[in-house]
Simulated assay, not measured.
Amino acid sequence: MPTVADIMERDPITVSPEDSVETLLKVLRTHELPGVPVVNGGGRPVGIVTEADLVMVDEEEDLRLPLHIDLFGAQIFLGPVKRFEERFRKAIAATVGDMMTEDPITVDADTDVKEAARIIAERRHNRLPVVEHGRLVGVVTRLDVLEALVSEE
């Protein structure tokens, strides 16, 4: 059974949390990528930014506060404020760190392809950062995994 190391894209394009959103957009456009891992100075993945992080759709467009009631001069929110705070943070993002999804799901380079396929399917991700000893060494995509599984049969 092949491992993720056998099929991954090595030396992937990355950005840092300190990079500007403008730099991020240039990287995505230049390399025609739908997403990119965010790594710290030590090469460890600390986040990921995908096209979904860049686009606000439907009810998110106007960033309405959750429903609330005023009671004795205080606002009591009837819905989760955390979701609003997350959307707001991404809407006004100036850096990649403001926009990224933190703590990305990663796979080890020695993970077998079937396990990577399971993770991709369950988490509905299109790409996973690949690590060795905690450091980013590659990226494996849904297409990479599908091609490996088909060629194995």
Rank of each mutant, 00 (worst) to 15 (best):
P2Q: 10
A5W: 05
A5L: 04
D6I: 00
I7F: 05
E9M: 13
P12Y: 10
S16Y: 06
S16A: 15
P17C: 04
E18C: 06
E18N: 09
E18K: 14
D19C: 05
S20M: 01
S20F: 03
E22I: 10
L25T: 09
K26S: 11
R29I: 04
R29W: 13
E32F: 07
P34I: 05
P34L: 11
G35E: 00
V36N: 08
P37A: 04
V39T: 09
N40K: 09
G41R: 11
G42S: 13
G42E: 14
P45N: 15
V46M: 05
I48S: 02
I48F: 09
T50F: 02
D53L: 05
D53C: 07
L54G: 06
M56D: 07
M56C: 03
E59M: 11
E59K: 14
E60T: 02
E61N: 01
L63G: 01
L63K: 05
R64E: 09
R64H: 11
P66H: 04
P66R: 01
D70P: 03
D70A: 12
D70V: 11
G73D: 07
F77R: 08
L78R: 03
K82F: 04
F84M: 04
F84T: 01
E85K: 15
F88C: 08
F88I: 10
R89N: 08
K90M: 08
K90P: 02
I92G: 10
A94L: 09
A94N: 14
T95L: 07
V96P: 08
G97S: 08
M99V: 11
M99L: 15
E102H: 13
V107W: 02
D108W: 12
D108Q: 12
A109T: 07
T111R: 04
D112C: 08
K114G: 08
K114M: 12
I120Y: 00
I120V: 07
I120E: 00
E122I: 00
R123T: 13
R124G: 06
R124V: 00
V130R: 06
V130F: 08
G134Q: 13
L136A: 03
V140K: 05
V140M: 06
R142V: 08
R142I: 07
L143P: 03
L146Y: 06
L146S: 04
A148Y: 06
E152W: 15
